[in-house]
């Protein structure tokens, strides 16, 4: 019970978000209108993707330092779930963009950045697939993971700020935090970020346990 309290927290918050995300009050903005509710789902996807990628990075560094195969399993599964959240964020963004910008895939540096990010992490899995030996696979993919993360970061954080972007907070557009969200929206938005991150960690922990059990079974056969 002590260890699973955060799962109750995550599911409770998620129910709260779904209910209040759809019936709560939102400020009426030109163009955005009711689609602003997507901010509870689209933006937290990126927050969770980022935190899962950072966790994956940390476990890769840990693996290189300690050499325990368990850390490698953690890194892979965090990256796996990060990709899923990336795709979900991409899709919610497409739907949102369709109604506000009139185009599901407009020319925007952040969209390009995310596409490249998904490519990088797919390459990570291709790399893993091409080795048989477990330790070798783990070591090389950990090196690539750290390297890829470091070259992915400037793409997401620096480049969109240098060029014009449709996204708020870049290229002179004001960020959501400043103008668009009022306090009632913030009451839903911040819990949403926490809830989605926790859900991501939960899914990852289930996958990790499954993988470790599988490894254990195979060792005993």
């Amino acid at each position: 019970m002590r260890k699973i309290w955060w799962k109750f927290l995550a599911s409770g918050l998620l129910i709260y978000i779904v209910v209040f995300g759809f019936i709560g009050d939102v400020p009426r903005q030109p163009i955005l209108n009711e689609t602003i509710r997507n901010v509870y789902f689209h933006v937290p996807m990126w927050f969770s993707m980022m935190s899962l990628m950072i966790s994956s990075l940390i476990y890769s560094i840990k693996y290189l330092n300690g050499g325990k195969i368990q850390d490698d399993v953690y890194a892979v599964e965090f990256a796996n779930v990060a990709i899923v959240f990336g795709i979900l964020g991409f899709l919610t963004g497409c739907i949102w963009g369709n109604y506000t910008w009139g185009d599901p895939l407009p020319k925007d540096p952040k969209i390009i950045a995310v596409e490249v990010g998904l490519l990088i992490y797919s390459a990570y899995f291709v790399l893993r697939g091409s080795f048989e030996d477990e330790q070798k696979k783990a070591r090389l993919s950990a090196v690539y993971n750290i390297f890829a993360f470091a070259s992915f970061m400037p793409l997401v954080w620096i480049l969109p700020r240098l060029t014009d972007s449709l996204h708020p907070g870049n290229g002179g557009n004001p960020a959501f935090g400043k103008y668009d969200m009022d306090s009632s929206m913030r009451m839903v938005f911040y819990p949403a970020v926490i809830a989605w991150i926790l859900i991501g960690v939960w899914i990852t922990s289930l996958r990790i346990r499954l993988k470790l059990l599988n490894n254990h079974l195979q060792e005993n056969i």
Binding site: V116, V126, L140, L155
Partner: peptide, 25 residues
């Protein structure tokens, strides 16, 4: 990346896949 790719059997294919997204920014 050449160091990473050289450890596998399919060096040149892996090289392109691994390096292009990283060089893009």
């Amino acid at each position: 990346i050449a160091g990473i790719a050289s450890k596998s059997d399919n060096t040149s294919g892996l090289m392109a896949v691994l390096s292009f997204p990283i060089l893009l920014p």
